[in-house]
């Protein structure tokens, strides 16, 4: 490989990695939020992401709803879907037997249920493409090229993350959510309504996954199996330590850039397996994540 080519690949994977990485960061953020407040890694998130993308597609293409209406409609629908799942299913599961493994099994159930339902509707029978929300004209930065759409994705994702940061730090509800994540018992003691926080977090997290779906769908081929993308969100969350929101964001960009580098420098075939290897390696070498704190010993 020549130096020229190396530079080109390097800059290109950095550029593309930032764009896809911003989506992984959103997905990881959504995952970590739920894990912090309800102690479940949401194995159904991929399918929430998938269903949200299809809702957006149906509104946009079949119902001809304008963009600016479609986006809030989709987010609201998915928000309530997530909240209802928590209220109706998870709350009941926790009552029946509180083990976190049972909650995980329930989210696995959600994942397959949604996938089957979406297949059954027939919309997902043929692979579809999502109309681009922004122009796809190329723009060059250094040696790398990207489209206007890419910049829009990156910009909107960053704006959403900034909004969440503000929400978590400067609103009562956002602070309460963080408090529940850090120490549920203490949060209850200071008067946080933990049940309300749980369904709010599920709704919010689902809406973030929906936003990620709307943003990235124009770059993907839509099928009922497109939720597999979320595995990269999982990888990002693990890299970030699985409990840290800033860690999730950094992890998202790390995974995005590494994925693109593997694709360009190694082989496109290896991209498929890379996230799984990344998950295993990180869990193996640093179970607390690359950015997480020291693992704490269990008190006897």
């Amino acid at each position: 490989m020549t130096w020229e080519l190396f530079l080109l690949f390097f800059q290109q994977s950095l550029m593309s990695g930032l764009v896809t990485g911003s989506i992984y960061a959103l997905l990881a953020l959504a995952m970590v939020m739920i894990f912090n407040t309800t102690d479940v890694p949401n194995f159904g998130q991929g399918e929430i992401f998938m269903v949200a993308s299809y809702i957006a597609l149906v509104l946009l293409v079949f119902a001809s709803v304008p963009y600016l209406v479609m986006i809030p409609l989709t987010l609201a629908a998915v928000f309530f879907g997530g909240a209802i799942f928590q209220r109706l299913v998870l709350k009941r599961v926790a009552l029946a037997r509180g083990a976190s493994v049972n909650l995980v099994i329930a989210t696995l159930g959600l994942s397959y249920f949604l996938k089957g339902v979406m297949r059954q509707t027939g919309i997902a029978e043929v692979p579809r493409s999502f109309p681009a929300l922004f122009p796809t004209d190329s723009v060059s930065i250094g040696m790398a090229t990207a489209t206007v759409q890419d910049f829009a994705i990156l910009g909107l994702a960053l704006a959403a993350m900034a909004a969440f940061f503000l929400f978590f730090h400067f609103t009562r509800t956002g602070r309460a959510m963080r408090a529940v994540g850090m120490n549920p018992r203490a949060a209850i003691l200071v008067g946080v309504d933990i049940e309300r926080m749980r369904w709010l977090v599920w709704g919010l997290s689902s809406a973030i996954a929906a936003l990620a779906g709307i943003l990235i769908s124009p770059k993907l081929l839509m099928t009922a199996d497109m939720g597999i993308v979320v595995i990269l969100g999982f990888a990002a969350a693990i890299v970030g330590g699985f409990t840290s929101l800033p860690g999730a964001v950094v992890g998202g960009f790390v995974i995005g850039i590494v994925e693109n580098m593997v694709g360009l420098f190694v082989s496109s075939k290896a991209i498929v397996v890379a996230p799984f290897l990344a998950i295993m390696l990180v869990l193996l070498l640093r179970p607390q994540g690359l950015l997480g704190g020291k693992a704490t010993a269990k008190k006897v």
């Binding site: 599961v93 037997r97 049972n102 959600l110 397959y112 249920f113 949604l114 996938k115 089957g116 059954q120």
Partner: peptide, 22 residues
């Protein structure tokens, strides 16, 4: 019928965890 399989497995997993964890 892959879709039915998925719906049934998914529903069973959720319902079992809700009403019959054992």
């Amino acid at each position: 019928l892959l879709s039915f399989q998925e719906i049934i497995y998914g529903a069973i997993l959720m319902l079992c965890m809700m009403y019959a964890p054992r």
